[in-house]
């Protein structure tokens, strides 16, 4: 059982960091696209949504092409900083960030677009500058939708398998997350371990679901 704790800890760490990364990027992109009349708005929207339709293995392959030792970004990272993302848990964070990005982006965009523009105009006419309009009206009204999107992102990042396996590999004690550990246990014929890890994962997910439900309901009442 002791060996179950590392995959759990790693999974939570990766999912948390990935949610943070995709959250910041996704919310900013959502704001940009919801607000702007950029001509490339639809194109950009499509690119951000790509990780949702592409198979995770294809995504993983592209990541290897970009950040692998011979990839454009990967070579620069290695030569400049001596850093390589391949076969590291940081690589798993990158993979999980990218697959969870469309979820938070879409939820945040919908939340921003649902805010009634006349409320923002009312705030402007009461003397608020654009930053104050955003912080005092738009963001509070979009918060519930953004929160729900973050939960989805986190769940998606926790369950991430394909792209993570391609880029971070399956190194027990280093890059082996829960999903990969379960797959590994089944492959090795260790049904007992696979069942245990699956139960552990289920417990974490149900707890999250419960917590997020309470969080959303509490906000609703406020």
């Amino acid at each position: 059982m002791a060996t179950a704790w590392f995959p759990l800890w790693l999974t939570l760490k990766v999912a948390l960091l990935a949610t943070l990364g995709s959250g910041v990027v996704g919310i900013l992109l959502a704001l940009l696209i919801a607000r702007s009349r950029l001509w490339l708005r639809d194109g950009l929207d499509g690119v951000i949504m790509l990780p949702m339709v592409l198979p995770p293995t294809v995504l993983g392959y592209y990541l290897i092409v970009v950040v692998g030792r011979n990839g454009m970004l990967g070579r620069w990272l290695y030569e400049r900083f001596g850093v390589s993302l391949i076969f590291t848990w940081q690589g798993a964070v990158l993979a999980a960030s990218i697959v969870s990005l469309p979820l938070i982006y879409k939820a945040a965009r919908a939340a921003f677009e649902e805010v009634d523009p006349s409320l923002e105009n009312a705030a402007r006419l009461l003397g608020s500058g654009e930053a104050a309009v955003f912080l005092r009206v738009t963001l509070p009204l979009a918060l519930r939708g953004i929160g729900a999107g973050l939960m989805l992102s986190f769940a998606r990042a926790m369950g991430e398998f394909g792209a993570t396996l391609m880029i971070a590999g399956n190194l027990p004690g280093r890059t082996q997350t829960l999903s990969i550990a379960i797959y590994d246990a089944v492959q090795a014929g260790d049904d007992h371990r696979a069942g245990l890890l699956s139960l552990l994962m289920s417990a974490v997910c149900i707890t999250l679901l419960f917590l997020s439900g309470r969080l959303l309901r509490a906000r609703h009442r406020a």
Binding site: D116, S118, N121, A122, R124, L125, L126, G127, V137, L141
Partner: peptide, 20 residues
């Protein structure tokens, strides 16, 4: 002049009260 500098009060048709 930006709306916030006009010192104009506006009562919207649906009132546009802040729901939060």
């Amino acid at each position: 002049l930006a709306p916030r500098l006009r010192r104009v009060g506006y009562v919207f048709q649906d009132y546009a009260l802040f729901p939060h």
